[in-house]
């Protein structure tokens, strides 16, 4: 592991929410490192601070104290617009609720992050098509999100997360809103992406899903209570050959 480059370095990270009367410590002095090529599941009960951690790792929120280095760049104290740039170029988001633009074609949805990166339209279209083909939706380019199933929507979201070749794929309960039969397909895609060298961090509370990862971090009350390799790694029962190769 020492040969791999660290993608995430978190040092003494804390997040405190203050209201007039109450001070809630969501993350309490958390430190860990995730290297290139890892597939990590972050688990914990609700209220454990795993969502807060996910927001900070996703550059959607800033820590109260401590340091977060993403792909060799300290992002702990960047401005709002600089964070937008980091999210755009370094992180690929996959949300529980898919979060596709309504009444917009899958192709346009996948093209969106590249528009914010200032990539010319022809290139955007070609790249979006390539990744939609890769997740097996090459024949659904002009369907809108309400015309395809939940599993297909999540595959569009995965394609969208990949278009700018991010350093990190951040998945927040990626199978939470999907029928079990389709969840396996999604996990197969993640495994394939990890096999191809992508670094994946997945937040989940479902042990079944977490077992697809190579390493599992448990969080409770804002602290890491367990961080160990996953010895019972599960592989998606679906054959990975269903995924078209690029």
């Amino acid at each position: 592991m020492s040969k791999s480059k660290p993608i995430i370095v978190v040092k003494n990270l804390s997040k405190v929410y203050k209201t007039d009367l109450l001070e809630t410590i969501a993350l309490n002095n958390v430190s860990f490192q995730i290297d290139q090529g890892e597939f990590v599941a972050i688990m914990g009960p609700s209220g454990s601070g795993k969502s807060t951690l996910m927001h900070i790792l996703g550059a959607l929120d800033k820590p109260t104290s401590g340091q977060y280095i993403l792909d060799s760049k300290d992002v702990s104290h960047l401005s709002e617009d600089e964070l937008a740039d980091i999210r755009n170029r370094k992180i690929g988001f996959v949300f529980q609720a898919f979060n596709l633009l309504p009444r917009t074609s899958t192709l346009k949805n996948v093209m969106l992050p590249m528009a914010y990166a200032g990539i010319p339209k022809e290139e955007r279209e070609a790249t979006a098509k390539k990744f939609l083909n890769m997740v097996g939706l090459g024949d659904r380019l002009h369907h809108t999100s309400n015309q395809i199933s939940g599993g297909q929507q999540q595959r569009v979201a995965i394609a969208r997360s990949l278009v700018l070749n991010p350093a990190l794929i951040l998945a927040d309960e990626p199978t939470g809103n999907i029928a079990t039969s389709q969840a396996d397909e999604i996990m197969a895609i993640f495994e394939k992406l990890n096999d191809d060298g992508h670094t994946i961090v997945m937040i989940t509370h479902e042990p079944d899903i977490a077992e697809h990862a190579k390493r599992i971090i448990f969080i409770r009350d804002g602290k890491i209570v367990k961080d160990s390799p996953n010895h019972h790694r599960r592989s998606a029962s679906i054959k990975k050959e269903v995924l078209a190769h690029d």
Binding site: A84, D85, L101, P102
Partner: peptide
């Protein structure tokens, strides 16, 4: 929600 998503995907202010 749409605005939140756009910002998450890199839209600046």
């Amino acid at each position: 929600r749409e605005i939140g998503l756009r910002k998450a995907l890199g839209a600046k202010k």
